[in-house]
């Protein structure tokens, strides 16, 4: 049995991922803001460093999998939090735990979003985020200063920043995937559709109305969102050795929404 780290595992998709992995007999460490095995704020450098240090202390021989799932919606009203948690909370943690994944030939799965295909991402900000791993790039703090100038009371701005972070995540995964795989570590991303989670349950009425415009073909004729376990099952598959041939993949797990809206984009 393996050792798996799941962020955002106290509820929603992450919670189901923890549950399924534990039911399979694995040792699973849930990293979340509260009600977790490691309570930490992944939106901060201190929180991420604490998690990286703690996991190294607990599992010096390596880990089998990392599922970066922690995130907030575009309707959370805090643009800086969207960027620092959704993007840096995944990318910097994955970089910090890469050596442990490498020790065991492990795998990483990052949760993106099917909204990445709908054209709302800001390309300029995606570039800033993706280049932020280089020494000459803007720091996280500098990018957050740019973001704080935007109108956080505008829901479409929040959505755009959310999509931007998820797009940047998916592109980061694609960019590093070849090198990581050559070092024995696979990395993939899932792009869920609208899922019934604590995050979507607290959305405003207008945000919920926007969800209705993104039909989920497998739930046609109902108002139902995707179930968290629909996504978690795919995450568990991708992070497992069964998915050995899958690397650098952005897997849409949205009940067919992306295919519905973008059927002509085969690749």
């Amino acid at each position: 049995m393996g050792v798996y780290i799941v962020t955002g595992g106290s509820g929603g998709i992450g919670g189901k991922t923890v549950e399924i992995l534990r039911n399979q007999g694995h040792e699973v460490l849930n990293v979340d803001l509260k009600d977790a095995d490691i309570c930490a704020n992944l939106a901060t450098k201190e929180g991420r460093d604490y998690v990286i240090d703690t996991v190294h202390e607990m599992f010096p021989d390596g880990i089998d999998g990392l599922c970066c799932n922690a995130g907030v919606s575009g309707a959370c009203g805090n643009l800086k939090l969207i960027v620092s948690l959704n993007y840096y909370g995944a990318v910097n943690l994955a970089h910090g735990l890469f050596d442990l994944l490498k020790k065991k030939g492990g795998s990483c799965v990052v949760t993106s979003s099917n909204t990445i295909s709908q054209g709302a991402a800001r390309p300029d900000l995606v570039d800033l985020l993706n280049y932020s791993q280089t020494k000459t790039a803007l720091s996280e703090e500098a990018i957050l200063k740019i973001v704080e100038k935007f109108d956080d009371s505008n829901l479409s701005v929040g959505n755009s920043i959310y999509v931007t972070t998820k797009y940047a995540l998916a592109r980061w995964v694609r960019r590093v995937s070849a090198s990581w795989a050559a070092n024995g570590v696979r990395i993939n991303t899932v792009a869920p559709g609208n899922v019934s989670t604590p995050m979507t349950a607290t959305m405003s009425t207008s945000a919920k109305a926007a969800l209705a415009a993104l039909p989920i073909p497998i739930n046609y004729g109902t108002d139902e969102l995707m179930n968290p376990e629909d996504i978690a099952n795919v995450i568990v598959f991708l992070v497992s050795p069964l998915a050995h041939g899958v690397n650098g993949n952005v897997m849409f797990v949205d009940g067919g929404t992306d295919a519905l809206l973008n059927s002509e984009k085969v690749y």
Partner: peptide, 19 residues
């Protein structure tokens, strides 16, 4: 743009019209 079948056409245009 491509949409197939009544249900697909309904869902596709629901998205297009609402947004």
């Amino acid at each position: 743009l491509h949409a197939y079948g009544p249900e697909g056409i309904d869902m596709f245009f629901r998205n297009q019209f609402l947004f």
